[in-house]
């Protein structure tokens, strides 16, 4: 029953959403593709009346750009380190949480806490924890006054302190800090979803396994993980999508310099590259980079779906 009154009513209700989506979602999609295909497109020059040639130059330039490859590398390293680590850790915590009764609710709440934080604000706390505090901060001549709580702990166990994020710190140390912070940040969502999945598994499967004397490890690998696989796939996909869009957590730790004072931009990511291009008024390059990011996310999602089809039991 499609009467005409319902027709125009429906469009009336949808009107605000449609207008806003047209301006701020649909037009940007078209425009991004357009700008990416105009050689060296710049918004500033465009308003001045400049004309741009049609071509794939932006894409080629972006791919050849050393800064971009560094960004891509950083993004991939962070993604492929943090997603598996946080997923496995979250799985272990969720399984452990699911197996206890006493303190379960309280611990669950604690594990969810990092979710309700501002990633820039808590990034500053992590930076403070890893920071070597000294005079002449940010220069070569920095004098260590206190090595920061993490280094204090390392020294307590007999190690030597490490320059994590300060002037002269190594790339590996920087990445380590980022991985710790991103994993810490990613745990709550994953634990929440996985615990929800675990609680949805019929208890009888476990009773049946118990009757058959199934060892704990086998219950985990043969029953829990396969039955949890849809949730695991979901957590991994959203993890990768989030990982490829990593940006603010690095700003949280390192600030806008995206790296230690002596190596600015060393930890820049894909999203960071897009914003840098935007602020230097190279919209053509930014658009090309954004489309490349979209393509990567699309490919990762498709691969994931493909793997899921074979491995995931629904």
């Amino acid at each position: 029953m499609v009467d005409s009154k319902q027709q125009w009513k429906a469009w009336l209700y949808l009107a605000p959403a449609i207008v806003l989506l047209l301006v701020f979602t649909v037009w940007p999609i078209i425009n991004t593709v357009r700008m990416s295909l105009l050689e060296n497109y710049s918004g500033l020059q465009a308003t001045a009346g400049a004309q741009f040639q049609f071509g794939l130059g932006n894409f080629l330039k972006v791919v050849r750009y050393r800064q971009f490859t560094q960004c891509l590398k950083n993004t991939c390293i962070l993604c492929f380190l943090t997603v598996p680590i946080s997923t496995i850790l979250a799985l272990l915590i969720a399984v452990a949480l699911n197996s206890i009764k006493f303190l379960q609710k309280g611990l669950q709440t604690i594990f969810f806490l990092p979710y309700v934080t501002n990633s820039i604000a808590i990034g500053m706390v992590f930076a403070a924890m890893f920071n070597i505090v000294g005079s002449f901060y940010g220069t070569e001549n920095e004098l260590i006054v206190t090595a920061g709580i993490i280094n204090n702990v390392i020294e307590f166990f007999g190690g030597t302190h490490i320059n994590w994020i300060n002037y002269g710190s190594s790339y590996a140390a920087n990445i380590f800090v980022m991985v710790v912070y991103i994993v810490w940040n990613a745990l709550p969502f994953k634990i929440l979803v996985l615990l929800g999945g675990l609680q949805g598994i019929n208890k009888q499967y476990y009773e049946a396994a118990k009757v058959d004397g199934t060892p704990r490890r086998r219950v985990f690998t043969k029953i829990t993980v396969p039955l949890l696989s849809p949730m695991l796939a979901y957590v991994v996909i959203t993890g990768f999508i989030g990982g490829f869009k990593e940006y603010t957590s690095i700003v949280g730790i390192f600030g806008e310099t995206m790296g230690p004072p002596d190596a600015a931009k060393r930890l820049n990511t894909m999203v960071g590259f897009i914003y840098d291009s935007l602020s230097s008024n190279s919209q053509g390059r930014a658009s090309a980079a954004a489309l490349i990011l979209f393509a990567i996310i699309l490919v990762v999602t498709l691969i994931n779906n493909q793997v899921s089809k074979k491995r995931v039991h629904y």
Partner: peptide
Amino acid sequence: ENRGIGLVFQNYALYPHMTVQQNILFPLQN
């Protein structure tokens, strides 16, 4: 597990991700 019993549940509790054969083999593999 040490009583040597077989139990058939009301809802059967067959592992949904395993084939019939894998389901039947499961107790033996333990």
